Deep mutational scan, measured.
Amino acid sequence: MDVFMKGLSKAKEGVVAAAEKTKQGVAEAAGKTKEGVLYVGSKTKEGVVHGVATVAEKTKEQVTNVGGAVVTGVTAVAQKTVEGAGSIAAATGFVKKDQLGKNEEGAPQEGILEDMPVDPDNEAYEMPSEEGYQDYEPEA
């Protein structure tokens, strides 16, 4: 019985440690998101679009440190934060509304985080759909 109880105690310690790591990862992701939003706020009209992409990228980098179902929630929060940063930029006159959601080359930025393969159960990952990809044929 002692062996059984000791095993359960060790398992509990492992769960607590994993929860603490997840909590730490979420806190880091939130900190990076805040950094990115402050970065966007300090940019001029020309830099705002690039700044919004930076927020998304920093958040995406930190999301990889967070495991399990938390990833889905962090990704949703990050996307809403990026959308909010863009709205703030438009409201303050840093950028025109028609410039939001495009990178410096004018290509749409939507789907940055949505296409990231995420499995809350950590069982399997699927690649994003290939609808947006084109076949590449090298020139002879």
Rank of each mutant, 00 (worst) to 15 (best):
E131K: 09
V118H: 07
Q99A: 11
H50C: 10
L8Q: 00
G84M: 15
G47A: 15
Q24C: 03
E110Q: 06
E137Y: 07
E35Y: 13
A69F: 11
A17W: 12
E46V: 07
T44Q: 01
N65I: 13
E130K: 10
A69G: 06
Q109F: 10
D2E: 01
G84D: 03
A11V: 15
L8Y: 02
T72Y: 04
D115K: 08
V70A: 03
D2M: 05
K6T: 03
D119K: 02
E35L: 12
V52T: 01
E46K: 07
G67H: 07
G25C: 08
N122G: 02
T92C: 14
S42W: 15
G86P: 05
Q79W: 05
A56I: 14
H50A: 14
A107V: 10
Q79G: 04
G25H: 15
S129F: 13
A56D: 00
E105H: 01
T72H: 15
V77H: 01
G25M: 10
K96R: 07
D119V: 07
V49T: 09
A85K: 03
Q109E: 13
P128Q: 07
A27L: 11
A27G: 04
G41C: 11
Q24T: 14
G51T: 11
K23T: 04
D98S: 10
M5G: 01
N103L: 08
G73A: 15
K97T: 10
P128K: 05
T22A: 14
A69V: 14
E131I: 12
A69Q: 09
A19L: 15
N103I: 04
A78D: 01
V118E: 13
E46Q: 06
I112Y: 05
D121G: 12
G86T: 09
I112C: 05
Q99C: 09
A91Q: 09
D121V: 05
K60N: 02
Y136E: 03
G47E: 04
E131N: 09
Q79H: 07
G106E: 09
T44I: 15
G86H: 11
Q24L: 12
G41S: 10
D119P: 07
V40L: 14
K34F: 14
V37I: 07
V66E: 01
D115Q: 08
T81Y: 14
K21S: 09
G101N: 02
A140W: 11
E35W: 10
P120Y: 06
G132K: 06
E46N: 14
K12L: 12
K32V: 11
A11F: 13
A29F: 15
E137H: 08
E126G: 11
P128F: 06
E83A: 07
Q62H: 05
L38M: 13
V40T: 01
K97Y: 02
T75D: 03
E104M: 14
Q62L: 08
L113W: 12
K97E: 05
E28Q: 07
E123P: 09
E110Y: 07
S87V: 13
G67D: 01
K45H: 02
Y125F: 06
E137G: 07
V37D: 00
M127P: 04
K34R: 04
K6M: 06
G93K: 05
A85E: 02
D119R: 02
G51I: 14
P138V: 08
G25E: 08
A89C: 13
K32H: 09
P108R: 10
M116E: 13
L38H: 03
V3M: 06
A90P: 02
K32G: 01
K12T: 09
E139D: 11
A107M: 07
V82E: 02
S42Y: 13
A78Y: 15
V77A: 07
N65S: 12
D135S: 04
G68A: 10
K80R: 10
K23L: 14
P128S: 04
V52P: 01
K34P: 00
E139G: 07
